[in-house]
Amino acid sequence: MPRDAEPSLSERTFVTKALNEGLRVDNRKFDQCRPVSLTFGDEFGVVDVSFGKTRVLARTSAEVTVPYADRPFDGVFTITSELSPMVAPSIEPNRPTETEVLLSRLLEKTVRRSGALDTESLCLVAGQKCWSVRVDLHVLNHDGNILDAACLAVIASLRHFKRPETTLDGEVLTVYTPAEREPVPLSWLHSPFCVTFSFYGEEGDIVLMDPTWLEEQLRVSSCTFSLNRHGEICQVSKLGGSAVDAPLFIQCAQTALSKSKEYTDLLERQLADDAKSRDKGGLMAELTAENDR
């Protein structure tokens, strides 16, 4: 049975000592995040997000299914998150660890329950046919702060995804291939992002953003805000750990808002770049057989 790697005493004392002196092991400032990279794949809905060494891959797919009997006018929307043994040998497949359960629960609350995706728009024939949109999330490397990275990946993947165009003619439902008709993006309502804060020190008064795995193992408590760029909070979770002062908590919420705006800007910019690189100048330019001479 492989054992989870734990930080040694020296690492514990050193990290704490350095934090009390206002230093972090990788020389970042307390509220400074690692460089975020967000790249899209060739297919629609494939996103690779990395925060420093933390790396998460998300993929969205859609298929036509039968809606749930109690919700005939809604489509199906699921988020499947998976931590594989690739992350660490201590993770066993099909036996979810606490991290994994918390990750999927928080993503559920942030993205699904906040109504980010308009599920009614996924309905094709009431009570008979609907789209089932599924996001598969794979954590490729865990170096702390997977929740923020995972949330960014899921939102980016859903925003990037395009489902096939359909028409309903009488009782005949036609699903067109991308060559026949341009695929359509999902009907999107708002983009919430998770921002996690970690607290250190005896009174929990040192706040770090985007901790590495080592720092994450040594924190006394943490809290996660999920909010969109308008400051509408979807959920706040602070699961155990030591108590945190109320003014500090409010301050964290303010920082979370500015961070959420940053993520929104990043995502919009990358989506625009991606759209530009895919645009070949209209259907005529795409279909022409003429070569440059």
Binding site: S10, F14, A18, E21, L23, V25, N27
Partner: peptide, 16 residues
């Protein structure tokens, strides 16, 4: 790789 010093900044600089 283990590094120790009186000064925390030195440790961080060497380690990095």
């Amino acid at each position: 790789f283990w590094v120790n010093s009186e000064n925390t900044k030195t440790v961080i600089a060497v380690g990095r």
